[in-house]
Write a protein that binds this DNA or RNA. Structure first.
Length: 847
RNA sequence: GCGGGCGUGAUGGAAUGGUAGACAUAUCGGACUUAAAAUCCGUGGGCCGUAUGGCCGUGUGGGUUCGAGUCCCACCGCCCGCACCA
């Protein structure tokens, strides 16, 4: 008899690991190091089943690497600054700090029972002054190296909450909390000079061999390199110039207007003189900067009355318009419009009745630009009306190159590379973030704080009863002495974007208590992160910012050059989803039912009163849809190992997995079965003498599971473990062979189900902890069968099979195949055209 | 609009170009039990057949190959990312 009592077993082994210090990482030059990291959580208050999946994957890698002789670093911390804490404070009257640290305590309490092999001694939260003080210190280093600067920038401003809003916080042009119409405001903000690294960040993507292609592509597109021509139009009235940038210089002959951004200096200059221009600009700049707002916005233009000369035909005069769709911070903030070959320009010209001039034509179909612009791919050959040789047949690429070369030769323009990537605005008008460590002095200007005064800690005595940043209205915190001249001065009250906090935590984990941001010896030893695991939602910003930060930290001497690409391998895991159970309520609105209130019969769900419910499968978990699975409840019901096993078992790790009650139940049954088999074997009886078959199956399993774990094929590895458990359960073998089999099975399962594995290990009298036991090695000689069964195909269709000795030579196999009844029948006395024998694989008879 | 991915039983999913559907779930049948639970054994793509077996089958159409779920082309459907970027 066995009793798989997880409530006893799991805490027992967790204590054993803790006492043995199994997962505490120390530098050890004698062993190869392995740094595995999962993206650290935000302390929202409860762990989510998605966290369980994420950390289980990391834990499988960590425990596997430990077993294969690596010195493993597997840390955990909290990304603890951010708005939810302030919102909670505003809603409940508490303090963001209390709320955050309480949540961290709760979440640690919820994570520990899951038995992750984490080095808890390295834990920190980004809101610890010891952490953000080091961040401030690096900020000052960045200032010295010119990696951070201040400039005016247009932001989304919520006039009620008196704060800057991120684009995601603007909904339908209104602030997400206040509901107030969002304004565009120009504020002086801090920026990291990430754009200096555009080319380098782009180039280095090629070297990220173990990153998903999708993520690399997303980063490439985000950096958005483009090549084009920059040149200037000369004003007819006063000879001043308006520089423009274009990626399609080959369409220059089709220019019919020049457009400038409402934020363009010329537009501002005109607005000062003309109330009409001013009111146009203010009308089109209302409503936020979000993509959503921009997409809905109609294309609007205002004719300035100014005309400019076409660079190649000074007698052609083009009107200058202010247009709302032109962005000030891309290119020069001014364009020329070529309506024939750009849809947006065409829409604009049709609306304002500007001329449309075709400059190239399709080689195959006649074109007639009406409401659809003719925009061939750059690689397509077209007839091109060029500015220096009349008509030419060329691809767009060739035409662009030729025009740039021509412009450079003539000296009126130059080829320019542009990037979409903007500098990273990091200022936030928020309390719960890392204070920017600078001081504003009337005499000295903006001065970095002295490092010995760090951390500039957030004051605790703040109130959230008024909108705006509490730091702004704190009576004393702002007041300080100028670090340069000593006179009374004011602290910067902006705090840093929380993405800053998460852009270097991985480096801090290598020396979390160091008196400097990092310790070079530790950083050299532990960096890079060998395997980073997290959600695809961080594919762009977090990963790009971290790549920038690693470079910036290297420049400031905080990371070795070898760590400028901090993540060697990246894995993006899927979500855990759950069905939604829905009925229509009396008022026509949907009613969502908890899974425990729904009875499933043959795939149809019913409520207790017999009402049928609609089942929406595999939906993202959401409190409002009542489909959230709480890991704490699952651990209580089945234990941590079941939760860990199930989230890995049913789907490939990169794909979403649907949590189902039946699946969790099945996982639990399987683990109970392994426990039962182990108890049975522990009784010491022989069940037969077929040891060889069992050993062969075992070593095949060792091989397959090892491959599975190495390649993130956790679901496939688990399938092999199921299959071997079936073999073991039925095996008729000696006690010694069965004991060996169950010990090894426990080892192979240990990365996924560490508690059960330790229990089985100790039941069988295994030595020490299974967590420290070396990973089993497959005996190659047992992987090869003496005989193989070869399928015989006739014209590619399987017709028969023969069992032959593994190394039987080809001629013999051919002979046997031709002697096969099915083959004889198919040949009907004739000769085969061809006979293909793939040794150990297959025979194909072609007739 | 641009870019990327995916499409296999009732379901989640397996399958270095080489026996499609491993493993699991649902279903159905059986053993044990007074009964139930638990456990164990079996069934588990479709069609025909008592059966040995046969035919069909990986979104659709074509191609490459001795052989295609896998590679290539086109189409259909779904999902994701980016986007007034000049």
């Amino acid at each position: 008899m066995s009793n798989y009592d997880t409530k006893t077993i799991e805490p027992k082994w967790q204590s054993a690991w803790q006492e043995a210090g199994t997962f505490v990482a120390n530098r050890d030059e004698a062993k190869p190091k392995y740094y595995v990291l999962e993206m650290f959580p935000y302390p929202s208050g409860r762990i989510h089943i998605g966290h369980v999946r994420n950390y289980t994957m990391g834990d499988v890698i960590a425990r596997y690497k430990l077993a294969t002789g690596h010195n493993v670093l597997h840390p955990m911390g909290f990304d603890a600054f951010g708005m939810p804490a302030e919102n909670a404070a505003m809603a409940s009257g508490g303090h963001p700090k209390t709320w955050t640290y309480d949540n961290i305590d709760t979440m640690v309490d919820q994570m520990k029972p899951l038995g992750f092999g984490l080095d808890w001694s390295r834990m920190f939260a980004t809101c610890d002054p010891e952490y953000y003080g080091q961040q401030q210190s690096m900020f000052i280093d960045f200032m010295e190296k010119g990696l951070v600067y201040r400039k005016n920038a247009v932001v989304n401003w919520d006039p009620v909450d008196m704060t800057v809003l991120a684009n995601e916080q603007v909904i339908d042009g209104k602030g997400w909390r206040s509901g107030a119409e969002v304004e565009r405001r120009e504020l002086t903000q801090w920026f990291f000079k990430i754009s200096d690294f555009s080319e380098e960040l782009l180039d280095a993507i090629d070297g990220l061999d173990d990153w998903p292609a999708k993520v690399k592509l997303m980063q490439q597109n985000w950096i958005g390199k483009s090549r084009g021509l920059e040149f200037s139009f000369e004003r007819v009235d006063n000879g001043e110039t308006i520089p423009v940038y274009t990626t399609r210089p080959d369409t220059l002959m089709g220019a019919s207007f020049v457009g400038i951004s409402p934020d363009h200096p010329l537009a501002k200059e005109l607005a000062e003189k003309s109330p009409a221009v001013a009111s146009f600009i203010s009308a089109v700049t209302k409503g936020g900067t979000t993509e959503e707002a921009l997409e809905k916005a109609e294309k609007l233009g205002y004719y300035t009355g100014i005309e400019v000369r076409h660079p190649l035909h000074p007698d052609w005069h083009l009107p200058v318009w202010i247009a709302n769709f032109i962005l000030m911070d891309y290119g020069t903030g001014a364009i020329f419009g070529c309506p024939a070959h750009d849809q947006r320009d065409l829409d604009f010209c049709r609306k304002y009745e500007l001329p449309v001039i075709e400059t190239f034509q399709s080689l195959t179909d006649p074109i007639m630009v009406d409401d659809v612009a003719f925009v061939p791919p750059k690689t397509e050959k077209v007839t091109w009306i060029n500015h220096f040789a009349g008509l030419t047949v060329a691809t767009g690429e060739e035409a662009i190159d030729a025009t740039i070369a021509f412009a450079e030769e003539q000296g009126w323009g130059k080829g320019v590379t542009n990037y979409r990537l903007r500098d990273w605005g990091l200022s936030r008008q928020r309390y719960w973030g890392c204070p920017i460590p600078v001081v504003h002095c009337e005499d000295c200007g903006v001065v970095p704080e002295k490092k010995e005064n760090l951390p500039i800690a957030l004051p605790d005595d703040v109130s959230f009863d008024q909108p705006g940043n509490p730091l702004d209205r704190h009576p004393t915190w702002r007041d300080c002495a100028c670090p340069a001249c000593g006179k009374p001065a004011k602290r910067e009250t902006d705090t840093m974007d929380t993405f800053v906090d998460s852009s270097w935590y991985f480096a801090r984990f290598t020396a979390p208590r160091a008196e400097t941001p990092t310790n070079m010896d530790d950083a050299k030893y532990w960096m890079n992160v060998d395997q980073y695991i997290g959600g695809i939602e961080h594919a762009i910003l977090h990963l790009l910012y971290s790549r920038f930060f690693a470079r910036a930290m290297h420049i400031c001497g905080h990371l070795p050059e070898s760590a400028i690409e901090p993540f060697d391998a990246l894995f993006t895991q899927g979500m855990v989803t759950h069905a939604i159970y829905k009925t229509d309520g009396a008022d026509g609105r949907p009613v969502y039912h908890y899974p425990e209130d729904v009875e499933l019969r043959d795939g149809t769900g019913f409520l207790s009163d017999g009402t049928e419910v609609e089942i929406i499968p595999s939906a993202k978990m959401s409190k409002s849809k009542n489909n959230v699975v709480d890991p704490v409840a699952i651990i209580d019901q089945y234990g941590a190992d079941t939760a860990r096993w199930f989230v890995l078992s049913d789907s490939p790790p990169e794909r979403d997995v649907e949590w189902t009650a039946a699946g969790a139940e099945a996982a639990f049954k399987h683990l109970s079965r392994v426990h039962r088999i182990s108890a049975d074997i522990a009784e010491g009886k022989d069940t037969g003498s077929d040891d060889n078959a069992l050993r062969k199956a075992l070593h095949k399993t060792i091989h397959d599971v090892t491959m599975g774990v190495e390649s993130f094929g956790f679901n496939a590895a688990i399938a092999k473990l199921y299959a071997f458990t079936n073999v073991l359960a039925k095996s008729k073998a000696s006690h010694a062979a069965r004991r060996e089999a169950v010990l090894t099975l426990a080892q192979l399962m240990a990365p996924m189900t560490p508690h059960l594995s330790e229990e089985v290990w100790s039941m069988q009298g295994g030595e020490g902890l299974i967590a420290n036991a070396p990973w089993p090695k497959a005996d190659e000689s047992l992987l090869v069968e003496d005989t193989v069964t070869l399928p015989i195909q006739v014209n590619g269709k399987r017709r028969s099979e023969i069992t032959v000795a593994k190394d039987l030579d080809k001629a013999e196999v051919e002979k046997l195949a031709l002697a096969d009844e099915a083959v004889i029948k198919a040949l009907a006395g004739g000769q085969p055209k061809k006979l293909i024998v793939v040794p150990g694989r297959i025979v194909n008879v072609v007739i």
